[in-house]
């Protein structure tokens, strides 16, 4: 899909009526297309080329890339830094903001800085505890929580005010996201928590790895009963597991990830475990895309990023659509 008002890469699209941001992700979702986002893992490096190389593998297959903010409480290039590099050449990053490492002064400053660079999507997270990462001796901040962070950014955008009440001359035009984990207890509170996130300003939701489809369906049904599905775009998370051993390790060591035994035994029983993990991922995408209220998919393929294009292609969810990437339109015109 080529918009009629395509800007020069690095410059912004106009904000359409009824939209909060100038972003492509919001346009795709509001136009009713099935959106694809993926996780872009940041390098442990100061070389910008490493970010571009990692981003390029998704070219033509994703509508947004999550620039993670110290995910798993491990130190990497900052989310703001990655977004600065990506927006420079027109990519549409989803800037993740975690409450673990920054207080409200730093976060609000980053929101303005990010929006000024052309970041149109921000994902508000509480963040994993410091015990999960490579610096367990660090001081956890948690000045805000994901909910108050959402509300804070929404007020910056809609009221043009900092949390202090001081006014902002040009508010950040951002599409606000939040995470949801239907797979962690207390299960019956999870849809209500989603309702709270929507009330606080969430416009799209990305979930953690979804392997337990019946549990997800139950969550979506309860959310529908609460009237939430019309108010928010939901993109469940999926990802290929490299082997049964990896899946088992993730289940035991990464907070909040639930992988049923059936998944582990299926991957473990296959001749080519890596391939089987990808096959399962394709099947999950197809199955999830059929569920009422699912607007897209979020692919987290840590250390298997190069497989994402193939997974998306095989799933068929883009239905012939080619999401934007630097140089896409020249390439399409040449074909």
């Amino acid at each position: 899909m080529i918009f009629h008002d395509e800007p020069i890469p690095g410059e912004m699209l106009p904000v359409l009526a009824g939209h909060s941001s100038a972003g492509r992700l919001e346009r795709v979702l509001r136009a009713g297309h099935f959106a694809v986002t993926s996780e872009l893992s940041p390098p442990d490096s100061a070389d910008p080329q490493e970010v571009y190389v990692r981003a390029r593998v998704f070219d033509g297959f994703v509508d947004g890339m999550n620039a993670t903010d110290g995910s798993g409480a491990n130190c990497h290039m900052s989310s703001v830094g990655m977004c600065a590099l990506l927006t420079r050449i027109g990519y549409a990053p989803i800037m993740q903001i975690s409450c673990r490492d920054k207080n409200r002064i730093a976060i609000q400053g980053d929101v303005l800085g990010g929006a000024a660079m052309g970041v149109s999507n921000m994902l508000c997270l509480t963040g994993d505890g410091v015990q999960a990462g490579d610096h367990p001796e660090a001081k956890p901040v948690f000045d805000l929580d994901c909910m108050s962070l959402l509300e804070t950014i929404r007020n910056m955008r809609d009221k043009g005010e900092f949390l202090s009440g001081r006014s902002i001359s040009s508010p950040p035009k951002v599409f606000l996201g939040a995470a949801s984990n239907p797979f962690a207890p207390p299960y019956d509170f999870r849809p209500h928590r989603l309702a709270k996130k929507i009330a606080a300003g969430a416009q799209f939701i990305q979930s953690n790895y979804c392997f337990d489809v019946p549990r997800f369906k139950e969550f979506m049904a309860r959310s529908r009963d609460l009237g939430l599905l019309e108010k928010v775009f939901i993109l469940p998370g999926v990802g290929p597991m490299a082997s049964a051993k990896t899946a088992n390790w993730i289940r035991n060591n990464v907070p909040g990830i639930h992988i049923p035994d059936s998944v582990i035994s299926r991957i473990g029983g296959a001749k080519d475990q890596k391939r089987e993990g990808q096959n399962l991922c394709v099947e999950l995408i197809q199955e999830l895309s059929e569920i009422e209220g699912v607007s897209g998919i979020h692919v987290m393929a840590y250390r298997q990023e190069e497989a994402v294009a193939d997974i998306i292609k095989r799933s068929g969810v883009l239905q012939g659509r080619t999401p934007w990437y630097p140089g896409r339109d020249l390439k399409l015109a040449g074909e």
Partner: peptide
Amino acid sequence: KNLRNGPCGG
């Protein structure tokens, strides 16, 4: 995590 608005995903 001093959460005031419900359980985290962890």
